[in-house]
């Protein structure tokens, strides 16, 4: 087994030599399969196979065991369609994504523009590190700090609002402000990653292009609008897709900020019950695993659809300018 694989490996590593023939094409294909095999296997065995089980079981009434499950067709999806809480969770997820995608992207872009290397200034390495650092921290550990900060009566957030003579808020205890509070935490936790992505995008713009723009009298906004922004198109698209996928799947901070292990997360009054939280609760708290699987399938399709729409838009706007 192993020796034949070694021979196989030797054969594909020779694939790069000689003129291109059918044999060479075949060898290159074999090389390709050999190279992607380790990662593809892991994806298939540990992610897609379990996901296929979820998709399968969402058409069944799962009885906890592998055999004897009852086929129920689209019944689980019908139940979801008639469940107000499911629609509420979709709304909350949409609200969360629609607010966070633009704010995260714009804030990250603004930070990147501020921190980049400028003609008369080195890049802001220390600040960049400080902004990125929260992304490194475990959510369980840092969310407790934010629970203290958001305390309506004695927390720092209201102390600051009070100092600015602004009305104080109930933050996580308010139907209106609970989800925005989670958004603030998420923004704090994740913006560093996207800032770095934008910084990388900025760094890849050739210096002479920037200089040419400024020689032409292009300063400030004009240079940004005409030179920098178009060249940031691809990285912007990448950031938007990444923020979208990550925000749709947000779970840990909602769980820890709004309830934690001891009480029902997602409150108050379902104000922070997003789709991934509801999937969790439906599966492990309410013990309706098939229903949770159906929700997972819906969420996956929605994520995929959103990414495809973004890709189509990006193809039109970004690449064919």
């Amino acid at each position: 087994m192993i020796s034949s694989r070694a021979a196989f490996l030797r054969s594909f590593t020779r694939a790069m030599h000689g003129p291109r023939s059918i044999g060479a094409t075949l060898r290159e294909a074999l090389l390709g399969y050999g190279l992607v095999m380790p990662s593809a296997l892991i994806f298939l065995v540990f992610y897609y196979a379990p996901a296929a089980f979820l998709a399968y079981i969402s058409f069944f009434h799962w009885n906890l065991f592998v055999n004897g499950n009852q086929f129920v067709g689209l019944r689980n999806f019908e139940i979801l369609a008639n469940q107000p809480l499911f629609w509420r969770s979709l709304f909350n997820t949409a609200y969360y994504v629609v607010v966070l995608v633009p704010t995260t992207t714009l804030l990250a872009l603004a930070f990147a523009l501020l921190l980049r290397e400028m003609p008369n200034l080195r890049s802001g390495g220390l600040s960049r590190a400080l902004i990125f650092l929260p992304h490194v921290t475990p959510v369980v550990a840092t969310s407790i700090i934010w629970v203290w900060i958001f305390n309506p009566n004695f927390g720092l957030a209201n102390a600051i609002l009070g100092f600015l003579h602004l009305p104080q808020l109930n933050w996580l205890q308010s139907v209106t402000w609970a989800l925005p509070s989670v958004m603030i935490y998420t923004l704090w936790h994740s913006v560093g990653l996207y800032t770095v992505l934008f910084l990388a995008g900025l760094a890849s713009i050739p210096k002479n292009v920037l200089e040419a723009a400024s020689v032409d009298g292009g300063h400030g906004w004009f240079a940004f609008r005409r030179v920098v922004w178009p060249m940031l198109g691809p990285v912007t698209f990448f950031v938007i897709v990444l923020v979208s996928v990550n925000t749709i799947q947000t779970f840990s901070q909602i769980y820890t900020l709004t309830g934690g292990p001891s009480s029902l997360a997602g409150g108050p009054a379902f104000a922070t019950t997003t789709d991934s939280l509801l999937i969790y609760q439906t599966a492990f708290l309410y013990q309706h695993f098939s229903l949770a699987s159906a929700m997972s399938l819906v969420l996956f399709v929605l994520t995929l659809a959103l990414t495809l729409i973004q890709k189509l838009l990006a193809d039109r706007i970004v690449f064919y300018r």
Partner: peptide, 14 residues
């Protein structure tokens, strides 16, 4: 696509 798989319920089949 792996990035887009909802993680919560996946742990049971995993």
């Amino acid at each position: 696509g792996v990035m887009m798989l909802p993680q919560q319920a996946l742990m049971v089949p995993q």
